[in-house]
């Protein structure tokens, strides 16, 4: 048992540094996912068929390409095309845009949960379409989708491990755990601590979403 803790204490810089990188990666990607996801959801329910199609193309593109492929294309592919994209930009953007497709779909389902009568009432009272969305629909939609958003966030935290394993090779939690493993040959111990690190992040996310749920949920 003490061997397990020795691996952590002797390599605390690697594990701590990796956790910090993962945290920043996930934080940045979360912001992108929510902002872009909301925008795409708005497109998906727009009155214009063209806008709806545009939103549909976004969702189908980013949801249907494996994250690892997206990471490789956004980094190696863009660099080959002459775009000097950095590791952080490529990593955060890929993870964020990928997750945004799921956020958009969940939000869309939340919007459908708002009864059509409310939207008609709002429009007939003189609200513009954007105002209706912002004031009436989205606030309610967000509340109903908090539990699935929590699941998406947790999935995103776990997906972030692919960023370090990809050609982008950011020194995230999993990557650094593997570096510790290759330095010490302590395979199980290194991965147990990586698992523990991800658990800390996912459990924190779970607690945060539970809190939001309690505060904002529409009581039924």
């Amino acid at each position: 048992m003490s061997a397990l803790f020795d691996v952590l204490t002797e390599n605390i810089d690697e594990f701590g540094g990796g956790l910090w990188v993962t945290l920043r990666l996930v934080g940045g990607a979360f912001v992108i996912a929510i902002v872009v996801g909301t925008f795409v959801a708005a497109l998906r329910i727009a009155p214009s068929a063209w806008l709806r199609r545009l939103g549909g193309i976004y969702v189908e593109t980013f949801r249907n390409i494996p994250l690892l492929v997206l990471l490789t294309l956004s980094y190696a592919g863009l660099r080959r095309a002459g775009v000097e994209i950095g590791t952080w930009t490529a990593g955060i953007a890929s993870l964020g845009l990928y997750t945004a497709a799921y956020v958009a779909e969940v939000l869309r389902s939340g919007v459908f949960a708002v009864s059509k009568g409310q939207i008609e009432a709002s429009l007939s009272l003189g609200f513009s379409y954007a105002q209706t969305l912002r004031r009436i629909v989205l606030p309610q939609a967000f509340r109903t989708v908090i539990p699935p958003l929590g699941s998406i966030t947790i999935a995103m935290i776990k997906n972030s491990a692919i960023v370090g394993a990809s050609i982008i090779a950011l020194g995230d939690l999993l990557k650094n755990a593997r570096i510790v493993q290759s330095d010490t040959f302590k395979t199980e111990e290194s991965f147990i601590w990586a698992a523990a690190g991800y658990l800390v992040l996912t459990v924190a996310a779970t607690i945060a979403f539970r809190f939001l749920e309690r505060r904002l949920a529409i009581s039924r």
Binding site: Y75, A76, R79, R80, E84, T87, I167
Partner: peptide, 8 residues
Amino acid sequence: LELIQNGA
């Protein structure tokens, strides 16, 4: 090889 070719 990919990374040195693409200048990363």
